[in-house]
Simulated assay, not measured.
Amino acid sequence: MDRQAVTIKVSFIIPHKGREEMLIQTLESVSMQTLPMNQFEVIVVSQNTAFSDALHSLANRLPLSLIFNDPNKTISHSRNKGAKEAKGEFLAFLDADIALDANWSMSMIDVLTNDTNIVLCSAMQKNAVNAPPLERIRTALSNAELDQFVTFLPGRNLFLSKTTFHAVGGFPEHLQTCEDYYFTQKVAETGRLLYTSASNYVHLGEDKAFLPMFKKEIWRGQSNLASIKGRSIPLRELPSFFIPFAVTLGVAFLLVALLYSNMSLVIMASVLTILPLAVYTGRLKKLTGGSVNMYYCLLFYCLYFPARVLGTLLGIKGALATPTHR
C-alpha cells in the first residue's frame, strides 16, 4: 500500500548520542510493532558526526529518517527537533536504549483514544533476562505506581498526541537532565498521566553495577535545582530533595559526635540517619520482593543518597545561571 495514501498514526522520535548498538536494538523492536509499518515513521536525531552502515541498512526495513544535531545541544533540543519533522498524529518519544514489546504502539493508542482525560502514557518496565540486583531494583522503583495516574513520568517511553505536545511548548531545552520531569508535569496540567501495564519495555541501558550508578547519579543530580525553576513542586516530590541531605548530613554529624563522644548528639544523628534509611530500604525490599536481598537494597540507598547530594551541590552554580524556561 502506498504510504502517502495512509495517515501516519505514530512518529517515533529517538534522540541519540554515542554508541549505536543499543539504538539498533531499539529500532529493531520498533520494526516488530503490530501497528502496520505504513502507519508509523521513525525519526532518529543523533549528535554523532556519522551513521554506520548497519544503521543505514535499517532504512530498508523501516520508514526511517536520520537527522544530525549539534553535539552541544541538550536531549530536549534533539526531541524538539525530531518533533518538528514529525508527521504523525501521535508522538512516541523513546530513549535510544529501549526494547519495546511488540504491542506497545497499539496499546498506547488504545489508552489515549479510549479515555480522552488521559493525555500522556508510558508502559511499565520489565527486567531483562538474568538481570542483576541493581537492574531489578531500578525496575521495581520504576513500577512502584503501576496502573495509576501520576504527576510525572520518566522519559524513556512517552506517548502523547502532537496537539498536546505543542500545547505545552515541547521539552525544556535549558535542562541537561530532569527534562522529563519538567515536561511531563507541564503535560499533567492539561490532563491525566497514566503509567500502564498494558504493554512493557526492557531498558537495555539500565544501571547494572553500583559504582557506575553512583557516578551517574552525581551527574543526574546536577539538574535537580534547575529543574524546579518555573514549575510548582508537588508535596510528594519534596522528600526526594530533602531525604538525601538528611541522611548524608546525619552520617557526618554521627561521625563528629562519635569523635567527641557526645552521646546526645550520637542519638540525634543516629535517628536522623537510620530512620529514613530504614524506611526507604524497607519500602524497596517490599517492592523487589524475593528477587533482591536486603543487603543490596541498603547498598543502593547508601550510594544513591550521597550521590544526589553531591550532584545537587555541583549543580548550584548552573541553577543560578539557568534562565526559567517558558
Rank of each mutant, 00 (worst) to 15 (best):
K126A: 10
F68P: 00
L160I: 01
G221N: 11
P239A: 07
S232W: 05
I24F: 12
L193M: 12
T49L: 09
L193R: 03
G205T: 11
K17N: 11
S197A: 04
M106C: 12
M213A: 15
S161F: 07
H166E: 15
T164A: 09
V44N: 10
S264E: 13
Y195S: 14
S29M: 11
P306Q: 12
D97F: 05
M294R: 02
I274L: 14
Y181D: 14
N200E: 13
L141W: 11
V187C: 10
G221D: 11
Q222N: 14
L238T: 02
Y304E: 12
Q25C: 07
F159L: 08
K126H: 10
A307G: 04
Y295V: 04
A96T: 02
G315V: 04
K215L: 01
P234C: 14
C178K: 13
G205W: 07
I243F: 11
L277R: 03
T163K: 14
L141F: 07
E189V: 00
L193P: 04
A321P: 02
L314R: 10
E189D: 10
A209C: 00
S105H: 01
L277C: 11
N114V: 04
L120K: 08
L27G: 09
R3P: 10
Y195E: 05
F305V: 01
Y260P: 00
L62C: 08
R136C: 03
A226G: 13
N48S: 12
A59L: 00
T34H: 12
V129Y: 09
I243M: 10
P172D: 15
G155L: 06
L158M: 08
T312H: 09
M32T: 15
E217P: 02
K317C: 02
Y195Q: 02
K317N: 05
T281C: 07
L193S: 02
P154H: 13
F245L: 09
F210S: 07
A83N: 01
L160R: 08
K216M: 11
